[in-house]
Amino acid sequence: MTDATTGSVTQGGAEGVRLQKVLSAAGVASRRVIEDYIVAGRIRVNGVVVSELGRRIDPEKDLVDVDGTAVQLDVSKRYVMLNKPTGVVSSMRDENGRPDLRRFTQDYEERLYNVGRLDAETSGLLLLTNDGELAHVLAHPSFGVTKVYIAKVEGAVTAQTIAKLTKGVDLEDGPIAADKARLLDASTGSAARGKAASLVELTLHSGRNRIVRRMMAAVGHPVTELVRRQFGPLHLGTLPAGKTRELTKIELGALLTLSRRDTRAGTSDGEQQENE
């Protein structure tokens, strides 16, 4: 069992729950298979490889990973991906009566909340969960979780503009540079009517308010449509607009691994919460 002051795990003893039982309940594998994992040195508790089959842990305190991927031991936690449509505000109850997220969470027994925000006119990947600790890590700008957006913008974007986005542009709240930027299409939209448009993919870890729209406006290409395709290790894939699905075990493991790594790294505060 975990020592409250040191975070270490008791070697053996009657306290705690057998590791095989906990991981089996978490859906990792059968108890027999988990024993094979232990023998092969594939399981760690609080960063230490487990070597004995009789190891007991405290599921509420100890952190377990298998092959380097974190495992959620609390089966009451739920993680849901939403492809938020445009016209919906990122709130569980909007004071102005606009469409909010309640319609997407009402069929779940747990009280789910959104991690971060997308503005009403931005669509795409939004994570809903009842895991407050993970939500704090992922939503807080200081942890710098990477997001990937595809923006439809006015005008024909050039290679020079793409280079400027990665080099950095000056905004009213300070300079900002995209981690990555690439031109997907420079002839989309209503070009037939004499109005050129482009598709640009931007990768950012910034959490500044409406950052994609402001960056593109600063380089002369206002955004007309914006979708978030990726949030950390999560990809929107083919999930239709307005639909939800629970994260796969692989997705959840990657998300938990990221959040635990960032928590250990400990970064400083400094930017607003995202609201693209």
Rank of each mutant, 00 (worst) to 15 (best):
E52G: 02
G207E: 07
D262Y: 15
D3Q: 01
G207H: 02
L19W: 10
A163V: 09
Y113H: 10
V157Q: 09
A177H: 09
K84G: 12
L138D: 01
V45W: 13
L23R: 02
L101P: 11
A70V: 11
T161H: 06
A29T: 01
T146F: 13
H136L: 10
V153T: 02
K195M: 15
A191C: 12
L226D: 09
A40E: 06
R193M: 11
A26Y: 02
Q106G: 11
A25K: 08
N96R: 15
Y113A: 13
A135E: 00
R111G: 11
S142C: 12
V115R: 11
I57Y: 07
S142Y: 08
A196G: 14
V115Q: 08
I57G: 07
T5L: 00
T203S: 10
G266Y: 08
K84F: 06
H221A: 01
Q160S: 11
G27C: 00
G266S: 07
A29M: 04
R42A: 05
H205F: 03
R228N: 00
T86H: 11
T129I: 06
G132F: 10
Q72S: 15
R210T: 12
L53M: 13
T146G: 06
A135G: 06
A156C: 00
V80N: 00
G13I: 01
T146V: 11
R55F: 02
A163G: 09
S206I: 01
R93M: 10
D62I: 08
E172N: 05
I150N: 06
